[in-house]
Amino acid sequence: METSTVAAPPLAVETIGLTKRYPLTWKRKVLVALDGLNLQVKQGEVFGLLGPNGSGKSTTLKLLLGLIVATEGEARVFGLPPESLEARRRVGFLPENPYFYAFLNGDETLRFYGKLCGVTGDKLDKRIEELIDLVGLQNGRERPLRSYSKGMLQRIGLAQALIHDPDLLFLDEPTAGVDPLGSAQIRDLILKLKKMGKTVVFSSHLLEQVQEVADRVAIFSLGKKVLEGSLESLLTENQSTQVLIPAEMNPEQQERLRKFIGQTGVNESEIRFTRPHLSLEQLYLRTVQAQPDFVSKDSPRP
């Protein structure tokens, strides 16, 4: 699968033996930030890069953006070298913990990045309206970015990454440091983008969110990709089956059900009855959003 030649359409991202090493001059050692990465992301996929800090996720993204040069190997974005302007016209990037220009307001920020990408005039105005709407920043248009909350910064970051309507998005830790509500909004945004047909490659160490949006993931450790596959195939436990019954059952009912299942040839003693748990996140979101006067609005950072 990894060496298959794709005629058309080109892969959104392809790397072959991509390696980045940093010589540590004083210690006479070499730090291997990324070791022989082979990766293929198809157009329209949402791909998650997982791994602990320093495992090579950010290095991969920087290499794919042409911000650093590979020691060995090759990276292609839509079949183009990543540092070429053609490739970057089709790519949007949200760096980790971005601050942007604190002295600009939301509108000015998008205008600046839009002009930089050659979007001008009415087209730019329209695009800004769309994006503000998409990321839900109506209340941040006139406010300088220095008064933005973390979640708002991430969302304006997403908006600037989208300003030139790229086909591929790189998001570096898009939910780091954002409160659960904010990160749920970002998650929803990623899903919206997927529906629009965009390819999204993002890195994260918050596994639960990855699970909810990614089609496929790769897990990194110490600069190496150690596991890759679709979530479906990676997360299914083939040795068990879960049945969800939306009602409370008393012990007697449980016993009858156990017997009934036993008739299908399953060992009765291995059947367990539990109550499904809400995740804490789900609970939190339900509670907050159930407030009568709740509107999706961020409080300014202290």
Partner: peptide, 9 residues
């Protein structure tokens, strides 16, 4: 950190 390959340097 500078990891520029030697030939580019």
């Amino acid at each position: 950190m500078n990891g520029l390959p030697l030939n580019l340097r």
